[in-house]
Design a protein around this nucleic acid. Structure first.
Lengths: 108, 108
DNA sequence: CTTACATTTAACCAAACAGTTAATTAACTA
DNA sequence: TAGTTAATTAACTGTTTGGTTAAATGTAAG
């Protein structure tokens, strides 16, 4: 079993799964709706598996409506991931020189 | 070959690699310095491999100083990752009710 | 009760991943 | 030149990942 940050990042490390999240960000959808744009490229069970990864990471929740399984995006795990990354903001946001100054300031 | 966002996320999806980045955020270090805290748990070649993953993702750059390989953190790829996640901020930041309202507003 | 639809599970496979130990390369030092 | 240190490469292994096809499950509709 992985720590939850690792689970979140590895769930995001796949373009199909990111596309599923993007789709869900525009509204809830059941499995076959989610699968539709990918059916040229992969089978339905493949999508089921990707959704399971997203569910285990807590990024998607499924409910029941007759034979359908409406899926919902849950952003909470992304908050932790972004919080982790924010510690590194200085390493991309500041210019090189300002970064140098910042680091030298920290050492004192 | 993967897209760069997938590469970034999968590089981050490992606690050892995140710890290496955390160490580098406190200053440059060569390979054996970086490895030291992990030597109880894994071998030096394992660290070399983790560093290679981070290098391929563009998160770390190595230079040469005699037999040492000083490593430096490069935050740039994190910027793209955070930018991607920012699209989902509304899904963790707003309360459930406000999120509902927001989504209903978008549909019109 | 049978059929159709939505989804999942099972069984399998190839490729990638994360580690190992042993050997190798490269540079400094005595 | 011989020995030491830093790091990488090679070869191997077990596990995980991402996909497949075929079968099974569960629900609704005739």
């Amino acid at each position: 079993m992985q720590d939850s940050l690792s689970q979140t990042f590895s769930a995001l490390a796949d373009p199909t799964r990111r596309a599923l999240l993007a789709r869900l960000s525009r509204g809830d959808a059941n499995v076959s709706d989610l699968a539709k744009p990918f059916m040229k490229d992969m089978s339905l069970p493949a999508i089921t598996k990707h959704l399971k990864v997203l569910e285990k990471a807590g990024l998607v929740t499924k409910s029941k409506d007759a034979q359908w399984r409406p899926c919902k995006l849950n952003g909470a795990p992304l908050k932790d991931a972004v919080n982790w990354m924010e510690h590194y903001r200085v390493f991309w946001e500041e210019s090189f020189d300002r970064l140098e100054i910042y680091l030298k300031g920290k050492k004192r």
